[in-house]
């Protein structure tokens, strides 16, 4: 759990030998090697992110249809609509369920597997290697795979389900579509939680565990009073990363259900996609995008705080 230490290091660093520029005006003092090395990155990053961000704010204040010639000023109309639109509320609800149920399962299974790997007598390396493979799968391929496995007429998993009497079009049924896309997310990303937690477990200080052992603690007591409390921070890091990713990606659901049936899997990112590219209502899409960005920024702020440890 060596987090953030390296970030603090530069601040405590001793003064640098050639760091003092010769006298020669403010501008010259700005031309340090560091600034010259940093400038291209910051310039490019700013122009491809800050400019679009400002453009997004502008668009959210306009009546802006893709088909229209000139956008007209709309004031806060898009924003008011955002808070009144039941479709948006529905999408946030789906997003929340997707995040809470998916992340909940990922944390439970992911931490469980990490503890098993931590305790396994042999083969940890091989198990870890195999377990991490889904992480490399492109989300859109994960969606294709989930669809292929659960396809009612010839999917391998659907075949197993039919053997036990479950016979339904899984992605076409309101009751099963959301669980199915959540399970695809769980399949792909539970290993990431495991990897993060396992690397925390492997760097646990040995003293508290040894002390617990001397006191005759059982495995469950050690888990409850030593291992889990010491791993809490890293589990939070993993959850924040995953939450931001859940806001970030739409690929898996886009390919499997495209948000259907009856909007039961339409997470907020997909709703934005539909508003922008099917209804061509760019102004409204921009407002939705900014509201998503706002949530990501809150999560990012929490993440930076946890990372710096204060």
């Amino acid at each position: 759990m060596s987090t953030g230490k390296s970030l603090e290091a530069p601040a405590q660093q001793q003064p640098q030998p050639s760091g003092s520029p010769k006298a020669g005006g403010r501008f010259k003092r700005l031309l340090t090697t560091e600034n010259l090395m940093l400038a291209p990155a910051i310039t490019v990053l700013a122009s491809i992110t800050i400019f679009p961000f400002l453009y997004l704010i502008y668009a959210s204040l306009m009546d802006f249809a893709l088909a229209m010639d000139d956008p007209t000023f709309a004031g806060l109309r898009n924003w008011v609509r955002l808070f009144k639109d039941p479709a948006i509320a529905q999408s946030w609800k789906v997003t929340l369920i997707y995040a809470v149920v998916g992340l909940g399962l990922e944390v439970i299974i992911g931490v469980g597997v990490a503890l098993l790997l931590y305790a396994t007598p042999w083969g940890r390396n091989i198990f870890v290697t195999l377990w991490m493979l889904p992480i490399f799968v492109a989300p859109v391929v994960a969606g294709l795979l989930g669809w292929f496995m659960l396809n009612s007429s010839y999917g391998l998993y659907a075949w197993v389900l039919q053997l036990v009497g479950i016979n339904t079009d899984i992605f076409g049924n309101v009751a099963t579509a959301l669980p199915a896309v959540i399970l695809i997310d769980v399949w792909e990303w539970t290993p990431l939680i495991t990897l993060i937690v396992l690397s925390g477990l492997q760097s646990l200080p040995s003293e508290p565990l040894e002390a617990a052992e001397v006191d005759g603690a059982s495995y469950w007591q050690k888990l409850r009073y030593v291992i889990l409390p010491l791993s809490a921070r890293i589990i939070v890091v993993a959850m924040l990363i995953r939450s931001m990713d859940i806001m970030r990606f739409i690929d898996t659901i886009f390919i499997t259900t495209a948000g259907g049936p009856a909007d039961s899997t339409k997470i907020i990112g997909l709703r934005l996609f539909e508003v922008a590219f099917r209804f061509m209502d760019i102004g409204y899409a921009a407002a939705i995008g900014l509201s998503m960005l706002f949530v990501t920024i809150l999560l990012g702020q929490a993440f930076v705080k946890v990372m710096y440890g204060r």
């Binding site: 961000f53 990112g269 934005l272 996609f273 922008a276 939705i288 995008g289 900014l290």
Partner: peptide
């Protein structure tokens, strides 16, 4: 979020 970045 990719969806938010796509619009601008």
């Amino acid at each position: 979020p990719i969806a938010a970045a796509i619009v601008p």
